[in-house]
């Protein structure tokens, strides 16, 4: 009998690919073997990893984009949290895929990773999206770099046949920023990773470069209107993206009485409950007071009704 798998650990991964999906967007593949392969094969949609980035070098000066010229020179010390867009396992290895934006000094260093490079990865961390029970339709809303765990969830829901219909709304500022692998065809944008008979995809961009011109939450509202008088108890809503988007999502869910889970992001020092920095303000059932829960331990996925969303700064 194999030994019990550890809950989480810090393992070395081998980079399998690190390719550019858009001007600011990259997809990184990390392969594990041995015990780590067994552990990471258990990864559930919504869980995350912490990547060690201190050991990575800066890219050559001519590869540093203009918007990071200033920040590039900052040192990085803390690990960086990433959720996954996919997990695939063979009998001996597990590969996880991460989609990241070229956002600051750490992700800038990550673009230097090449196949064969080694990287330390801590995980699996956090909770996961709860699988729907007795629901017909799962509505998934992804905003910006919040797309990867939503992609992971969509493919997992489809594979498990957990609902009869999955409707995924993906939004970004512009189509080039979409944090999902895409193919531009004369007929429009297609998302090969999400091609499944029971997944329908709607795209929205702030600048109208593809799909609906406007917020992704507009598409959701429209879908709900078209859905009409159908019972909302059959629906379940999942979201990951910028907090203002999640706040709107929570309001839509509340108005329509739809169960809703959101995956949140906070500044995280460690991701393993040591630093106590990533608190989320949570309403208690009595609603008389709020408490703090750690995003890395109690989250990152929360019931939208519980969350006191942060005001935009």
């Amino acid at each position: 009998m194999p030994e019990a798998i550890k809950r989480r650990g810090d393992y070395e991964a081998r980079v399998t690919h690190n390719r550019q999906l858009g001007k600011l967007c990259y997809r990184l593949g990390l392969e594990f073997s041995g015990d780590a392969a067994r552990l990471f094969a258990t990864f559930q949609p919504g869980q995350f990893v912490q990547l060690e980035v201190t050991s990575l070098a800066l890219p050559p000066a001519d590869k540093i984009p203009a918007h990071l010229q200033d920040q590039a020179w900052r040192h990085v010390m803390l690990r960086r949290p990433f959720s996954l867009c996919s997990v695939s396992a063979t009998p001996t290895t597990t590969t996880i895929d991460i989609i990241y934006y070229l956002f600051g000094p750490a992700t800038l260093r990550m673009i230097t990773l090449e196949p064969g490079h080694r990287l330390r990865v801590l995980g699996p961390l956090g909770n996961s999206f709860a699988m729907p029970e007795n629901k017909q339709t799962a509505l998934l809303v992804a905003g910006g770099v919040g797309a990867p765990p939503i992609q992971h969830l969509a493919t997992e829901l489809a594979a498990r046949d957990a609902v009869s219909q999955i409707v995924l709304f993906a939004g970004s500022k512009t189509i080039d920023d979409l944090a999902i692998e895409r193919q531009d065809t004369p007929q429009g944008v297609s998302l090969p990773d999400l091609e499944a008979p029971n997944i329908a995809v709607h795209i929205a961009t702030d600048d109208g470069s593809a799909g609906h011109h406007g917020f992704v939450t507009d598409c959701l509202v429209e879908w709900l209107q078209e859905h009409g008088e159908g019972p909302t108890a059959d629906l379940v809503l999942y979201g990951c993206g910028p907090e203002p988007m999640l706040r709107v999502l929570a309001a839509i869910a509340s108005r329509n009485k739809i169960d809703c889970q959101v995956s949140l992001e906070r500044y995280m020092g460690c991701g393993m409950e040591l630093c106590q920095s990533c608190v989320v303000e949570i309403r208690t059932p009595q609603q008389t007071e709020t408490i703090y829960k750690l995003c890395c331990l109690a989250g990152p996925v929360f019931d939208a009704r519980e969350v006191v969303f942060e005001e935009a700064h």
Binding site: V76, M77, Y267, M268, Q276, C278, V279, E281, Y292, E310
Partner: peptide, 10 residues
């Protein structure tokens, strides 16, 4: 309960 967020910055 501690302080509001952000609580850390690198």
């Amino acid at each position: 309960r501690g302080n509001p967020t952000p609580r850390v910055v690198e």
